[in-house]
Nucleic acid binder design. Structure first.
Lengths: 185, 185
DNA sequence: GGCGGATTAGTCCTGAGCGGACTATATTGG
DNA sequence: CCAATATAGTCCGCTCAGGACTAATCCGCC
């Protein structure tokens, strides 16, 4: 079993995410960041500094090429294009078995230590979380309306439906626990 | 808005997780790691090297004290005890508003790029994931049987029920998508 | 009785990844 | 007209992950 973050090709998950976006066409670091925010960012996030750090490494490894594009009304930009080697590596990664990483939720961490805080504080945290999830759910439903019948977005829609299912599960859980906390002394 | 990882007291979430465990009694690095695996680790993980790195910093900041315990039949150990300042900081953190971090699921990342792989490969990934979640679900149900009527474990049980709800939602999602992929050309 | 593997306890190193500060110019909104 | 936002990117310091390594003792099994 290799690392959770590094593959046999020696690339990290973030590098593959970037390659995946580049497979739709050449992009600059800035454009990649924007594109991520609008789509894949819902399931894989990376800091701006991180994607800028990753790009030169992809070029070094022969997974992408780059050229400077001079612009007149905007700052110049460095545009990256995926290579055949890059596509091959991405393809292999897609088919490789998946290793998920451990859960890390500050929210659930606080719930776990719920016995060390007043009941009302915990309830407030859960209500807050519930409200956030409700907002998320609305956002997802809005996106759903826009992409549900667009065959181009089918796989985005599949991940979106994961979000919808999870959000509804969150709300059910929150309601159940809030009711229970309300009945407690 | 301060950092997502660092609080106003200057501590990271992992440091608070450690403080939380220390609030149940003095522990060595090794014991903390073990304790985490059996409980809080389901919602917050940290590498061994990380908890060993965090402990001296807690002492430096006055959140914990430490003393060497010499043992005869085992290697000596360094035991850490939470201080009043540590408890206060932990308490404050518990009550502070929560910032969740961005989602990072290699699995969903692959699903997002599902259009770039053969249908059967994607289906295999989802089946694999489903099987893992079913195993998790069984594990959770087993734990549930052990702690459901123990009032000491109430808040652990609350987080466990989150796991149960999410696992069931995962399975529903997987079944729905697998059916759909099966009907596709 | 002895061997191998797990357990106890910890150190150290490399690299991934995060968030924020900073620079600079150009466009847009009030 | 001025402030805010958008475009495009660099850099720093920190958190965090994983694996390699040491070293002794305990346990199971043949």
């Amino acid at each position: 079993m290799t690392t959770a973050t590094r593959d046999s090709t020696g690339l990290s998950t973030t590098e593959f995410a970037v390659l995946g976006l580049l497979s739709f066409g050449p992009r600059s670091g800035y454009e990649l960041k924007k594109a991520a925010e609008a789509g894949v960012g819902y399931v894989w996030t990376a800091a701006k500094s991180h994607v800028y750090g990753v790009l030169p490494r992809l070029v070094e490894g022969g997974f992408a090429t780059t050229r400077r594009v001079t612009q007149e009304r905007r700052p110049d930009k460095q545009v990256y294009r995926i290579t055949r080697k890059g596509r091959r590596a991405f393809q292999e990664w897609l088919e490789a078995p998946i290793e998920e990483r451990g859960a890390r939720s500050p929210f659930l961490l606080k719930v776990f230590f719920g016995g060390l805080m007043r009941n009302e504080v915990l309830a407030a945290h859960i209500e807050q979380k519930r409200a956030e999830v409700v907002r998320e759910l609305e956002e997802y439903r809005e996106i759903e309306g826009r992409i549900r019948d667009d065959p181009q977005s089918y796989f985005g829609y599949v991940t979106l439906r994961w979000g919808l299912t999870q959000a509804r599960a969150w709300i059910r859980w929150a309601d159940e626990i809030l009711r229970e906390l309300g009945e407690r002394p």
